[in-house]
Computed example of a mutant assay.
Amino acid sequence: MKQTNIIDELIESGLFGEHVAIEAVKGGAINRSFRLLANDTQYFLKTFELNHIAPSDRQALFIQQAQLADHQKAAKPIYLSRSHDFQVEEWVEHTSLLNSSLRHPDKITFLARVLWEIHQLPTFALSIDLPKNWMLYLENADDPDDVYWLDRIDKCKPAWIDTHKVDQVLCHNDLAMEHIALTEPAVIFDWEYAALGNRFFDLASCALINKLDEHDTIALQTHYAQLCGLSTEYVFEQCQLQFPIVALTNDLWYLVAKTVKKDIG
């Protein structure tokens, strides 16, 4: 979406005044991020570049983020575009967990606690059909080796069906250290993949997204088990079931993201 179109819509909304400017800031692999300046106030603006491939209920996610903001776990959302392809929310000045001066072991402990706190929140999230998303990603990606991907999907789908509705909690599903602000209390960003799901998928996803080695992954699982009052053996066992599902989801997402990034330049 062109920046001029975004600015025009923001002005037309009547929420940001007549003098609106946006400047690019570091974003994710695909979605673009901006600092929005309006009426001497700054906001955060994010585009949703994959929305046309794996459609999400952005209105429901907007409401969900507002509820999370009420629980002091998210930045307050301000505006969702008419086409649901960008969102404006409060600007939160912060240092991320990734860039903090905490010792690395302490970062792992902090990460486990944030996961545990998210999983305690009221389950007002929607569920997702992950196998459906896998197929949508595959259909929209530039990759001729469908046999390889379909074989991985066939192997992971039964495990996902068996475990998805077990021990369901609100899951963030993209909890990178850079998505955690060391505010008081800690604010978490990028809730666009949040959904109701198996807590151990979220735990395994957190380990993969943060590229934790075996030692750090064990530490993350151990701290999480202690916080939940679960045996470490049980947590390890459940995460082992989720790692192949998480890896497939991550690989297919990056496959289609590469295609979209090429298309949008």
Rank of each mutant, 00 (worst) to 15 (best):
Y224Q: 02
I245K: 00
V256M: 11
L220H: 05
N250H: 15
D251N: 15
E233K: 13
L220G: 04
L220M: 08
Q240L: 03
L252V: 03
Q238P: 07
V235R: 02
N250I: 14
F236Y: 13
Q242E: 01
T249I: 06
G229S: 01
L241A: 07
L248I: 03
C239I: 01
W253F: 04
L227R: 05
Q242P: 00
D251Y: 09
A225W: 06
Q226D: 14
N250R: 15
C239V: 10
F243D: 00
E237T: 14
C228W: 05
A247N: 11
I218S: 09
T217E: 12
A247H: 09
L230Q: 11
A225D: 08
W253D: 06
D251E: 15
A247M: 10
L227H: 01
L248Y: 03
A225F: 04
A247Q: 14
P244A: 00
L230H: 13
E233C: 07
A247F: 09
A257Y: 12
G229P: 03
L255M: 03
F236W: 13
Q240P: 04
Q240Y: 01
H223I: 13
Y224V: 05
F236E: 13
L230R: 10
C228Y: 05
L220T: 00
C228G: 07
E237Y: 12
L252Y: 04
T222L: 07
I218Y: 11
A219V: 08
W253A: 05
I245W: 01
Q240I: 05
V246Y: 06
S231K: 09
Y254P: 01
L227P: 06
Y224P: 05
V256C: 10
L248G: 02
Y234G: 06
V246N: 01
Y254I: 07
C239Y: 04
L230N: 09
A219F: 06
P244I: 07
V235E: 00
F236D: 14
A257K: 11
Y254F: 14
